[in-house]
């Protein structure tokens, strides 16, 4: 309850200031105007369309980048020798900021979904690879021996033993990557891609509609918060404390 006081106070203060001084600026808007703009954009479906564009790109990038990260994470996690051989290329590629690849992807794909998905995939690849390989190398050795005794092939061993045993921490990896995917998708849209919520904010700013700009910002915050809360709850329900054990990097 106490947590709600500060935001309410700030909103009330902003509203009061806007009413008394009657700001009509290109960069500020009264909270009531922001709420009205939010309601209007929600009612005519624009906001949902933008959200669908952003979330679809984020999910596609997460699936591709996270999937590749998981495959490589399996290789690295199951065979420390492979991990050592791949060490240098990974160390060289990982520090490249995802946005540095924006112009490269722009050359290759042009504007649109493919550009955004490629950048999101690059960004999501690393957390899944790093946390995923740690999770997989942490799988109890004796379980793997059981698989050998049962004469499972390598694929059956991965499907029936490794993935289920590492699942709680793999979920953590994908949860963190999901947060990254949304942030990167919005960043790509703000930087140059004419799609989704990020571009909607830029467009509202360029056409001097601060109420709409702040409304989209609030909405981005709500979407990010909701996805995060949803995944955290799912993690708690599905795995409980299992996901917390050694969940560090």
């Amino acid at each position: 309850m106490k947590g709600l006081v500060l935001p309410i106070l700030l909103v009330a203060l902003a509203e009061g200031a806007a009413r008394t001084f009657g700001i009509a600026s290109d960069s500020l808007a009264a909270p009531s105007d922001i709420a009205a703009a939010l309601a209007e954009a929600l009612a005519d479906g624009r906001l949902l369309l933008w959200s669908a564009q952003t979330v679809a790109s984020a999910l596609a990038g997460l699936a591709i980048g996270g999937g590749l990260g998981l495959v490589l994470g399996l290789l690295v996690g199951l065979s420390p020798a492979t991990g050592r051989v791949l060490h240098l290329p990974i160390e060289f590629l990982r520090p490249i900021p995802s946005v540095a690849l924006l112009p490269v992807a722009l050359l290759g794909f042009g504007f649109g979904y493919r550009l955004e998905i490629a950048i999101v995939a690059f960004a999501c690849f690393w957390p899944v690879l790093i946390i995923g390989s740690a999770a997989i190398s942490g799988v109890e050795r004796r379980l793997l021996e059981v698989g050998r005794v049962l004469r499972f092939g390598p694929l059956a061993r991965i499907r029936k033993i490794v993935l289920p045993a590492a699942l709680p921490r793999l979920f953590v990896a994908f949860r963190l990557a999901a947060g990254v995917s949304l942030i990167v998708a919005v960043t790509v849209e703000i930087a140059l891609n004419p799609l989704g919520l990020g571009y909607a904010m830029m467009y509202a700013q360029e056409t001097l509609r601060p109420a709409l700009m702040f409304a989209v910002l609030v909405w981005v915050g709500l979407v990010g918060w909701a996805i995060n809360a949803l995944l955290l709850t799912a993690q708690r329900r599905l795995f409980g404390p299992a996901a917390l054990v050694n969940a560090g990097p």
Binding site: S27, G179, I183, V186, I190, G198, A204, L217, V220, G221
Partner: peptide
């Protein structure tokens, strides 16, 4: 916390 830092750019 989950708000993208880049969303500050239009503002």
């Amino acid at each position: 916390r989950p708000l993208p830092a880049s969303a500050l750019i239009p503002i």
